[in-house]
Amino acid sequence: ATNIVSKVKWYNSTKNFGFIEQDNGGKDVFVHKSAVDAAGLHSLEEGQDVIFDLEEKQGKAYAVNLRIK
């Protein structure tokens, strides 16, 4: 899926990962520091509106092509 609009559930800049809620009630989506860095960001804030693409690797959903709404 591409261009999903949602909100950051939480992000831990010390552990370099977090999760984004899915508005459709699906499972929370993992977001890694590499996606945050690629977006030119230093961190994410809880409740922040984001747009991302969903990529599945080894049966897990990852946020990629992250951008701020």
Results as ranks from 00 to 15, higher is better:
41 L>H: 07
9 K>A: 04
6 S>L: 05
52 F>H: 03
33 K>I: 06
12 N>R: 08
20 I>K: 01
34 S>D: 07
58 Q>T: 08
51 I>T: 10
40 G>R: 07
30 F>N: 00
9 K>L: 06
33 K>C: 07
39 A>F: 03
16 N>A: 12
60 K>P: 03
6 S>M: 06
7 K>E: 02
44 L>W: 02
38 A>W: 07
27 K>D: 09
55 E>A: 12
39 A>G: 06
3 N>Y: 07
27 K>H: 10
45 E>N: 12
44 L>H: 02
21 E>S: 14
43 S>H: 12
17 F>K: 02
51 I>E: 09
27 K>S: 10
65 N>T: 02
52 F>C: 03
17 F>C: 04
5 V>W: 12
7 K>D: 01
35 A>G: 03
31 V>T: 03
54 L>N: 02
59 G>E: 06
63 A>P: 01
27 K>G: 10
27 K>A: 12
64 V>E: 04
59 G>N: 08
49 D>F: 15
24 N>C: 12
3 N>R: 08
52 F>A: 02
59 G>D: 07
11 Y>I: 01
54 L>Y: 08
12 N>K: 09
36 V>F: 05
56 E>R: 13
67 R>D: 04
29 V>I: 12
16 N>D: 04
49 D>Y: 15
20 I>C: 04
3 N>F: 07
23 D>K: 15
48 Q>D: 10
29 V>N: 03
36 V>N: 01
2 T>V: 13
43 S>F: 12
13 S>F: 10
61 A>N: 10
22 Q>I: 11
40 G>H: 07
22 Q>H: 14
3 N>A: 09
21 E>R: 15
20 I>L: 15
6 S>G: 15
2 T>D: 07
3 N>D: 12
48 Q>W: 13
23 D>A: 15
5 V>C: 13
49 D>I: 15
49 D>E: 15
15 K>A: 08
16 N>T: 07
23 D>Q: 15
10 W>R: 03
61 A>V: 15
25 G>W: 08
10 W>H: 03
12 N>W: 09
67 R>C: 06
39 A>R: 03
24 N>K: 11
66 L>V: 09
65 N>M: 04
10 W>F: 10
50 V>P: 00
36 V>M: 08
44 L>D: 00
62 Y>H: 08
13 S>V: 13
27 K>N: 10
62 Y>F: 10
27 K>W: 09
62 Y>M: 08
67 R>V: 07
9 K>M: 04
56 E>N: 11
15 K>V: 09
45 E>H: 15
17 F>T: 01
20 I>G: 00
20 I>P: 00
62 Y>R: 08
43 S>K: 12
20 I>Y: 01
59 G>A: 05
24 N>D: 11
10 W>Y: 07
32 H>G: 07
64 V>F: 06
49 D>M: 15
64 V>H: 05
25 G>D: 09
6 S>Y: 07
6 S>A: 15
46 E>C: 13
27 K>E: 08
